[in-house]
Design a protein around this nucleic acid. Structure first.
Lengths: 148, 148
DNA sequence: ATTTACTCTATCGGATAAGTAGAGTATTGT
DNA sequence: ACAATACTCTACTTATCCGATAGAGTAAAT
């Protein structure tokens, strides 16, 4: 299950990726546009900033900006950041491997085997999807409003 | 994240699939062999029975048996039964679709798009893996102890 | 100086997961 | 019949975490 934090983070990042480049967006505006509780979004954006995904600008005219190109921000990083490893069980995780206490031999564990396949399939999708590529797909359905 | 219930369920089912056909296995034995708290396993097996995955036999010589062939029991059913839909978000679920309250238009929602891909990839693995096929894979690594 | 807007820590209520307890029921063997 | 075996079912406890909110603090712009 994707947490609300991760979900809101992706929504906000997509909005930032779609907006004007180097035009900071305010928390309040993002929250309103994306239907996210403002104080909750605040927390999320702060986390993204501290991970180096976003930059921020204080004071009037301030707000948040992407810290790098949308083609270099992958969903895998965002989801892991808020929800932890992609693998359904720790023993199947690539980035945060922890063995199971109740497992005699991992090489012969059916759960391990099957869940490794799930984690690989998930990682293939999320680590292969950037904000830019996701926006492209969205725009194939409905083209973006042209900037004036 | 896979719940312990789902994990224990799969482990127990694999043990049953590997054991003698039509030889009931006792909760206590399964619990000991698979390192699962006995009373907790009790609950899990009861659930599997009530879903028609297992049959049970009371009294001396009793225990649990698979209700159908291992090649016809799929991980997808087991995981859904204990952990709910495979999709990371309800709006991406095939079997339990629920729209998001905070979503203006699903067709244009990046989260929806990406998570549908994740759910499809996960479903492909879990609905494509039966107890029998999983055991086959395990046995490719280490052949089973031959029955005496 | 004042306004704007991000920064950070603390807190709270509710839900859920994991596990435990115990009384009840059906079946088998003697 | 009756005792032993083993599943059946409901209720409960405990801990943890998620989602959300509050409020004081800091930096930048005008």
């Amino acid at each position: 299950m994707l947490s609300k934090k991760a979900k809101y983070a992706i929504k906000a990042l997509l909005a930032l990726a779609e907006g004007e480049r180097d035009e900071p967006m305010r928390i309040a505006d993002l929250a309103r546009d994306q239907q996210i509780p403002p104080k909750f979004l605040e927390l999320i954006l702060l986390g993204l900033r501290n991970q180096g995904v976003l930059r921020s600008q204080k004071g009037k005219g301030g707000g948040y900006l992407l810290a790098r190109d949308p083609s270099e921000i992958y969903l895998g990083q965002i989801v892991r950041m808020f929800d932890g490893p992609l693998a359904p069980v720790p023993c199947a995780s690539q980035t945060a491997y922890v063995p199971c206490a109740d497992c005699r031999d991992e090489a012969v564990c059916g759960v391990h085997l099957a869940m490794k396949e799930v984690r690989d399939a998930t990682a293939k999708v999320l680590d292969g999807t950037s904000l830019a590529s996701l926006l492209t797909k969205v725009h194939q359905v409905a083209p973006p409003a042209p900037p004036r």
